[in-house]
């Protein structure tokens, strides 16, 4: 049981949710948006949550959208990770989210919850980070707005307080043209936080992009690393070694693995991924 008093609200519309957030703030409450609840409830149990009201977004139909909308693939923010995998609209996204947590928990975690997690990993971001066309549809005080993911991503997705994610879209042609590999490496157990999760994609022009989670305290992609990985004049092992040396951030040193071990695992995993990607073509 969560500490009381915790207030629970389940709005039916985007406007209701957005207005409610401001209304609760004006009443000196500390609201937070609520999707699957796995992280919020875990943090509440540890008294590590600065909120006393949850706004459950699952009652809003627009946040459940899961479709090819014209030329774009659209993923609603309260879709469960298992729903994304079962429908498999974008196999790169499926391969990445299907390694988050365990199967039962993936039936509870939502896409939006993962993207806006306070944990460092946010693995669902990786496929969107390597694409050029990822957009966010966001609820703001001025109505529903489109934002380029690249414009709001700075170590994390930064929305204004009270704004919330409605859906993420990506160009369907770009998504389908990406040959991809997604590997999650853990220290020992299959179910664990990652030492490193890597999403790599080979674009139609032959260039390679990679995004990393677990290496640092936030997910990232790096144009310098991508340039090294794309230099197919060099063998995969050499490119992987150079890429790890050129990472823009230090590898974290934590309970899951030392910085040196992370570098070692990332290097051999990258080399393997490059070989497999290039063998596909």
């Amino acid at each position: 049981m969560m500490p009381n008093p915790l207030h629970y609200y389940r709005p039916d519309t985007i406007t209701e949710a957005r207005d409610l957030f401001e209304q609760l703030q004006r009443a000196n409450q500390r609201p937070t948006y609520y999707g699957g609840g796995t992280e919020i409830l875990t943090r509440s149990r540890l008294n590590d949550g600065d909120f006393d009201a949850v706004i459950d977004l699952k009652g809003i139909p627009e946040l459940h959208v899961h479709e090819q909308d014209g030329s774009r693939l659209r993923f609603g923010s309260v879709l469960r990770l298992t729903e994304l995998a079962d429908r498999d609209l974008w196999p790169f996204l499926t391969a990445t989210v299907d390694r988050i947590a365990d199967h039962t928990t993936r039936g509870q975690i939502t896409l939006g919850g993962n993207l806006f997690s306070t944990l460092p990993y946010k693995e669902a971001l990786l496929p969107f980070l390597v694409s050029d066309s990822a957009d966010l549809t966001v609820a703001t005080p001025d109505g529903v707005k489109q934002r380029r993911l690249a414009d709001v991503f700075d170590e994390e997705l930064r929305l204004d307080p009270g704004d919330f994610l409605i859906s993420v879209t990506v160009d369907g042609q770009e998504a389908k043209a990406l040959a991809f590999k997604s590997f999650k490496m853990t220290r020992q157990d299959w179910i664990d936080y990652p030492l490193v999760t890597i999403g790599t994609a080979r674009r139609e022009d032959g260039s390679i992009r990679a995004a990393f989670s677990g290496w640092s305290s936030f997910p990232f992609t790096s144009s310098r690393v991508n340039k090294i990985l794309s230099n197919t004049q060099k063998p995969p092992e050499e490119r992987a070694r150079e890429a790890v040396a050129a990472m823009p951030f230090h590898a974290v040193d934590d309970i899951h693995g030392s910085s040196e071990y992370r570098q070692f695992v990332t290097q051999y995993t990258l080399a393997r991924m490059l070989k497999e990607l290039e063998a596909q073509s």
């Binding site: 609840g37 409830l41 699952k58 199967h103 039962t104 039936g107």
Partner: peptide, 18 residues
């Protein structure tokens, strides 16, 4: 673990109003 609409969920991770 219990089933909600026949899908397994961890009941410690669900608020009852949901």
């Amino acid at each position: 673990t219990v089933l909600v609409n026949e899908i397994p969920v961890k009941s410690c991770m669900v608020l009852t109003p949901e």
